[in-house]
Design a binder for these strands. Structure first.
Ligand SMILES: [Mn+2]
Ligand SMILES: [Mn+2]
Length: 318
DNA sequence: GTTGTAG
DNA sequence: CTACAACAACGCACC
DNA sequence: GGTGCG
């Protein structure tokens, strides 16, 4: 096949992106092509961009399509276009070593990632400028098997508890088996602190429902209970980004929800690349996500003692 | 999807 | 020149 | 140091 520049390039908001095999089936069962996936990211970009701003990304690639084996990638390669923005993260053990990761500041970046077969986009819970200061806290609810409605009820219970404690709480589908209950934070505290706080809050949930919930990740210890996965709250770790597709049949989408939708009942795979357009006509339930970011130190002044102790407080001078 | 190397 | 293999994460808990 | 886990 003769190569012409025009056929291997896609223009995205004025930027020329290398884009090969647009009709390649990335989701063969549903007939979803690379071009269709790129359409998705161009379409959700206005809502996705503020949630990706300044965040190091990890992608999950399936260059030969879903079902042909995938792998995570976080390092920017030499052959990435030079307009793809990136940032260096020191490694936790041995900060003299760094990992250069993509930061998406333009829809063309996501289209480029689609071109190399990225079916999932995962984002840090901190911004590049302060990679150890969490600006959100995620409770990732992972059922033992496939989704059951118990997971949804637990998420709603979580919201009730967190709201009673005065925390802002958002939720998204993961496009897989559960939900991400998410608290926006001012970037002031390290992941060591937010993870300990998440653990303490998880323990409060377990006290309400010990038969169905656990914080123990080992499968042989969980025994049918829903895992409250707090391990996304860690340095240089990521969670599937809002509006990302998943490497699952149907090209499900991790979708920001309103709590009304959660209360009324919803499946974590309800939203897909095929029906997500319906949501984009409706108000964005996460539109004020960062506006409501919480300063945990201020919050701690009126929080229960055990929780305040984890956050640490500025002591009033006497 | 891209690169390096063997044939 | 073509073919094919190699490569493409990391952090935390626990034994 | 290796394993389990996401
Ligand atoms: Mn999960
Ligand atoms: Mn998880």
């Amino acid at each position: 096949m003769r190569k012409t520049v025009r056929e291997d390039v896609r223009v995205v908001a004025g930027r020329e992106v290398p884009f090969t095999h647009p009709h390649k089936l990335l989701y063969p069962e549903q007939g979803i092509t690379k071009a269709r996936l790129a359409d998705h990211y161009e379409r959700v970009w206005p809502r996705m961009a503020p949630l990706l701003k300044d965040r190091p990304l990890t992608i999950k690639r399936y260059p030969r399509g879903l079902g042909q084996g995938g792998f995570y990638q976080r390092r920017v390669q030499e052959w990435f276009p030079d307009w793809v923005r990136s940032t260096e993260l020191p490694m936790k053990d041995d900060p003299s070593q760094v990992v250069r990761e993509v930061v998406a500041d333009h829809p063309a970046t996501l289209v480029f990632l689609v071109n190399i077969g990225a079916l999932e986009i995962h984002a840090s819970l901190a911004r590049a400028q302060a990679p150890d200061l969490a600006d959100m806290m995620i409770f990732d609810l992972d059922p033992p098997g496939d989704f059951t409605d118990e997971v949804r009820r637990v998420a709603v219970e979580f919201r009730d508890m967190l709201e009673d404690l005065g925390l802002p709480v958002y939720v998204k589908t993961t496009g897989s088996r559960g939900f991400h209950v998410t608290v926006p934070l001012k970037p002031r505290l390290s992941f060591d602190v937010t993870r300990r706080l998440a653990r303490a809050l998880g323990e409060r949930m377990i006290a309400r429902d010990p038969d169905n919930l656990t914080l123990m990740p080992r499968k042989d210890v969980r025994k049918g209970r829903i895992l409250i996965d707090i391990w996304r709250n860690a340095y240089a770790q990521t969670a599937v980004a809002p509006w990302s597709t998943r490497a699952r049949a149907g090209a499900t989408v991790a979708t920001p929800l309103s709590w009304d939708e959660m209360t009324q009942g919803i499946h974590p795979r309800a939203w897909t690349i095929a029906n997500i357009g319906e949501r984009l006509a409706l108000p964005d339930p996460w539109a004020d996500f960062f506006d409501r970011a919480l300063d945990l130190r201020s919050w701690a002044r009126s929080a229960p003692d055990d929780l305040a102790a984890i956050v640490g407080q500025n002591v009033q001078a006497g």
